[in-house]
Design a binder for these strands. Sequence first.
DNA 1: ACCTGAACACCGTTCAAGT
DNA 2: ACCTGAACACCGTTCAAGT
Lengths: 226, 226
Amino acid sequence: MAMQARGSRPGPRRTLTEDEIMGAALDLLDEGGVNAASVRGIAARVGVAPNAVYTYFPDKAAVVKAIVEHLLGQVDLAVFSDRKVPWRQRIESLALELRERLTAHPGAVNLMIGGPMDGPRALALNEHLMETLQDSGLDAKEAARASYLLIVYVFGSIALEAAELGHGSGGPSEAQRVASRMEGFSAIPANTFPLSAGASSVMAGYVSTGQYTWGLHKVLDGISRT
Amino acid sequence: MAMQARGSRPGPRRTLTEDEIMGAALDLLDEGGVNAASVRGIAARVGVAPNAVYTYFPDKAAVVKAIVEHLLGQVDLAVFSDRKVPWRQRIESLALELRERLTAHPGAVNLMIGGPMDGPRALALNEHLMETLQDSGLDAKEAARASYLLIVYVFGSIALEAAELGHGSGGPSEAQRVASRMEGFSAIPANTFPLSAGASSVMAGYVSTGQYTWGLHKVLDGISRT
DNA sequence: ACCTGAACACCGTTCAAGT
DNA sequence: ACCTGAACACCGTTCAAGT
């Protein structure tokens, strides 16, 4: 919310950046889950007293916001703006890129959808989606609605994926995620939930890229034609 | 994870139920957000020492799981099982019911998607969706995929809605939620994000039932035909 | 079996003080 | 302007003890 003064950075003692603090927080989040990313933990990692963090961020929520913006900022929207590429393919590429970037930090995904997602990077994403959807022939109102639908799908999918494998140590491989899913579903009692149990194998596939794409196609099918 | 022994409840001193503890936790969550729903706060509300909670639940995570299951259990799936009603309408009614029940407890929604959602109520929901989708003519594999897509949409939508209005005091009216959304979007700088800013009014509508239904229809359109 | 008092190892945040 | 030590008001959880 409150942006830090930008002019002078090097103070009397140490030189320390907002980015360093944010990076340390993200590292802790990846290594030890959400509980590990404490203000005190961050301070310890950058070698400073706990309250020194408050020189750079007004509170912990601001650090979380910085992480969210940092992660969203990792995808370069310009790459998906080439009008020579069909609009559906541009959106699909972007959706895959977002999933790849975010599933690398499962602990951060919870924080992402826990807050309003109203930072500049999030707005830029919405703006980009609306532009692309208008390219497809939708008017402004339809584009706004469809953009939000896509955001719900992409972040909803990623959030549910992240939730399934817990908030432990982050950055598991696709194979590990599938295995984790399989393990979870194999515990379903087949007598009470026959369909869910029978669908275990295919459900496990939902943490795979292919099934994410399948769902995205369905959403895009819905958007394409009424 | 570990179910409590069921046989004997009344002990030497007080009579106290898992449901009472869970209810107190939900009340605190609604009144004061996620931070207010502490083990110590729960204990104080039911008039007991903090550690007495651990007689009923192994840890705080188990209390959260109980809340999630309780909320999911509030929707009676049998109501949406009438085969005389078209399958799309059955799903739409269920999706609306879920949204209504869950948006009444915004603080709980974050907790819901923060964990695996693998309790009996969640499985029953998945089972019900798969049954309904098989009624529509999908085979088992397609039904499993489509069911997960619907779950992503419903819980993704509700989660993003809940995130927008913060984790403060819960149970705002639809009008309040729309107003909150409008307020947020009116702060968008029109020069850098023209489309997003221009879409403010329609985007505000996304916290309305009508726009939730719009998105659901698009998803169902995608599912209906490949 | 249920509950308590006391303690342990933590939190986020503030304040006065140092350079 | 930046950092520290110390403190405040909290956490979740455990343990030994009481009934």
